[in-house]
Amino acid sequence: MQQTVVDRIEPIAEDTVTLRLRGTTGPLAPWEPGAHIDLALPNWLTRQYSLCGDPADRESYRIAVRHERLSRGGSEYVHRFLRRGRTLEVSLPRNHFPLVPAPAYLFLAGGIGITAVLPMLRAAAGSGVPASLVYVGRSAATMPFAGELRAAYGEQVRIVATAEQGRPDLAALAAGMAPGTLVYCCGPASMLAAAEAAFPAERLRVERFRPAPKTFGPDTEFEAVCARSARTVRVPADKTLLDALAHAGHPLPSGCREGLCGSCELTVLDGRPEHRDDIGAPKGRMYACVSRSLTPRLVLDL
């Protein structure tokens, strides 16, 4: 974890504030567009936020927090109680939504999803690669960074206020794309579903706020063998691997507990994990909060 202090809190749109988190012990860890951090709040909650500042700025991180109407305590704390000068721990940046090289980019952002996309657009434009952004929100007043984007990128950015203009025609966007264009989309589930219907899967990259609906077989009991400590932990059918390991004295970092943030990543030495995450676990890895086992035993690097 890294120690930061809240250096600035500013409203950026209706129900949305930006935080500038300044490192207290020297430069902060580097990051690339698409990365996020875990923010440990004083009310014992940990929440994930995309980094939306400048990767060249090693002195501070910028995030944006929307006050959710059905807040589970994270955004409500930030908006109602967090103050300038408060010390906060943040994780090292993780990136499950990296910007990969392409001849051209189309970025799609819905609401607070702009936070993941903003540094990508900046990086693409800075490298001279053709890039455009379609930014969708209920109204201009609810859309963070809309003015900043218009000023910096002009006609490369299309702002769509759905209350006045309706939803953009993604099929028409797909039909007009140049060959090789990669599409990056971050926003609510309805936007992601529309993007998945409109664009070829091999050209689309998405980041989700909530897990996609999935169907799995019934949960069954299995054993987790901790190779380094020579301990075997029973994982009952009604308990996650994350909780079983914590109960046995092997607590792991955990943030979302939904297979989205990657903080509980484990290395699998033997056995076949059943991946239930939305990140796409690399070979030989799994996420303990949601994933289980297809074999009676998993051997873990613990």
Score class of each variant (00 low, 15 high):
37 I>D: 01
136 V>L: 07
118 L>C: 05
122 R>H: 14
89 E>H: 15
156 Q>F: 00
64 A>R: 06
23 G>D: 03
108 L>K: 08
44 W>L: 13
132 S>G: 12
47 R>C: 09
123 A>W: 06
33 P>H: 05
146 A>Q: 14
137 G>P: 05
48 Q>C: 13
135 Y>I: 02
108 L>R: 11
39 L>C: 04
107 F>M: 11
85 G>D: 13
50 S>N: 11
29 A>E: 08
128 G>S: 06
80 R>D: 13
72 R>P: 14
48 Q>F: 05
39 L>G: 01
53 G>S: 03
112 I>A: 13
22 R>F: 05
57 D>V: 04
103 P>D: 13
149 L>R: 02
102 A>E: 10
70 L>D: 15
55 P>K: 00
60 S>F: 04
24 T>N: 00
140 A>N: 05
23 G>L: 10
61 Y>H: 03
75 S>N: 12
46 T>N: 06
65 V>A: 02
117 V>F: 07
41 L>H: 04
37 I>R: 10
76 E>A: 15
81 F>L: 09
77 Y>C: 01
35 A>V: 08
139 S>W: 00
29 A>M: 12
127 S>I: 05
25 T>N: 04
23 G>Q: 06
114 I>Y: 07
110 G>I: 15
156 Q>C: 04
70 L>Q: 13
55 P>T: 01
45 L>K: 13
27 P>E: 10
94 R>I: 06
70 L>F: 07
51 L>N: 00
56 A>I: 01
71 S>E: 08
116 A>W: 11
143 M>Q: 11
51 L>T: 09
156 Q>G: 08
141 A>I: 05
78 V>F: 02
68 E>V: 12
34 G>F: 10
33 P>A: 13
79 H>N: 07
85 G>S: 13
23 G>R: 06
81 F>H: 15
98 P>A: 07
150 R>N: 04
81 F>I: 01
124 A>R: 01
142 T>R: 09
107 F>K: 04
142 T>K: 07
55 P>H: 06
54 D>G: 04
107 F>D: 03
145 F>A: 03
44 W>D: 14
29 A>N: 02
140 A>Y: 01
41 L>D: 03
48 Q>K: 10
146 A>V: 11
